[in-house]
Every structure is written in C-alpha cells, then in structure tokens.
Simulated assay, not measured.
Amino acid sequence: MPKTETFDKDLVVQQVTEVFHTKSYTLTSMQDLVDATGLNRSSIYNSFGSKLDLYMMCLKDYQSKSMDHIQGIISSNSCHINTIERIFYSNAECKNGCLINNCVSEMANQEDSINTFLKNNDNGMIDLFKDIVEKGQKEGSINNKKNAYDYAIYLVTALKGFNLSTILMDNKKDTQSIVKTILSVLE
C-alpha cells in the first residue's frame, strides 16, 4: 500500500521557490531543499520527481502568482500608461529580482524544457503588453509612432533589464529615472 502524503505540496513549492530564488538553481543542493521543507530526500523525489521537475513547478507557480499580481494592477488602473508604470515599479520591489528573469540568465541555454517555458513566458508577456499598449493607443496615453507589438517587445526587453538592474540599485531616484525614461518612448 503506497504511503499517503502528510504535507502540503503548495507549501513545499513555496518553501523551495524561496530557496531557488535566493540561491539559484545551480547553487541549490538537495540538502538545501531538505532543510527548507523538513522533508527527507525520498519524499521530495517521490512527490516531486527530480530537482529540475521541482524547479519547473516553482517557475510555473511563480509565473501564475506574478500574472495574478499583474492582472490586479491592470484592473486597478484605468490609464494604460500608468498600468505599465505600475508593473515596472512592482517589479522593483523584489530585491532578489524576478525568479523567471534569473532563470533566463542561468538556465535558458542549458535545458530544453526550461528554454521552452521561458519562450512561452516571453510570448505571454508580449501579448499582455501588446493588449495594454493597444488600449493605451486608443485612449491616447500611448503614442502611435510604432505598432503595439513593437512596443510590447520593447517593454518586455526593458522589463528584463530593469529587473536585473534593480537587484543592485539602492537609490529610488535612479529607479524612478529609469522608469520615466522607458515610459518616455511611449508618450
């Protein structure tokens, strides 16, 4: 008779996500995961598969929570240029950077499943920004010098660079200056 799990899988994913976010995939050992969760190695392997499988679960969970957060920003702002600004500022709040962006710099070219996940995430972000830009262009808060898709690619690229930059940035004025400069292209 198989053993029944006596732990909360969602809590374990949250605990492990914190470890990966702090240490990175490569520097996280199985012992780190054992220490963070209080589970033994066999429970982790039996319930979640390999370290890579668990990392993918963490990335998907992080992506889902990030999209929920962004959807909250979208629904609470009526001006679309302000929505973009708020998305950027909310990304500056995490001192460990964005887990998905950190994954791009660490793992994008090392694992096909990670590469596919990251490309799909980028495409989703492009679609999200394209929709925001199109609405902003219709309302007049975003210029029509470029099409919404071109601006969306620009914003996704700018957000990635912004996320990496803010890890080291302590000066709020510098952060504000970067966001204002990024937005000036759209105004």
Rank of each mutant, 00 (worst) to 15 (best):
E85Q: 08
I44W: 00
E5N: 06
Q176L: 07
T22Y: 03
F117P: 05
H80Q: 14
Y154M: 01
G49D: 04
D127W: 06
N144I: 10
V13A: 04
E85K: 12
L168Y: 14
F129N: 05
S42C: 07
T166V: 14
Y25D: 01
I70P: 00
L118R: 00
L183H: 01
N46W: 15
D68P: 09
S184L: 05
S78L: 11
N121R: 10
S43V: 02
E111R: 10
H80P: 04
D122M: 12
I153V: 14
H80D: 15
T157C: 01
C58Q: 02
P2I: 08
L33N: 05
A108E: 08
E18V: 10
M57I: 10
N91L: 10
D68E: 15
N102S: 03
R86S: 11
V156F: 08
K146A: 14
D32L: 03
S75L: 08
V16H: 03
D122P: 03
H69Q: 08
D68K: 10
E18N: 10
N144M: 09
L59M: 02
G38L: 01
C98I: 00
S64A: 15
K95L: 09
T181S: 07
M56H: 11
T6Y: 08
S24Y: 03
L155A: 11
H21W: 06
K65L: 12
K160H: 14
H80T: 09
S184E: 02
N109M: 13
N163T: 07
S78H: 14
A152E: 02
S105A: 09
D174I: 13
I178V: 12
S75V: 15
L159T: 04
C103P: 01
G161N: 05
D122W: 12
D35S: 11
L52Q: 09
T4S: 10
S177P: 02
Q137D: 02
N147I: 05
S90K: 05
D150T: 12
N96F: 05
K160Q: 14
D131E: 03
M67D: 11
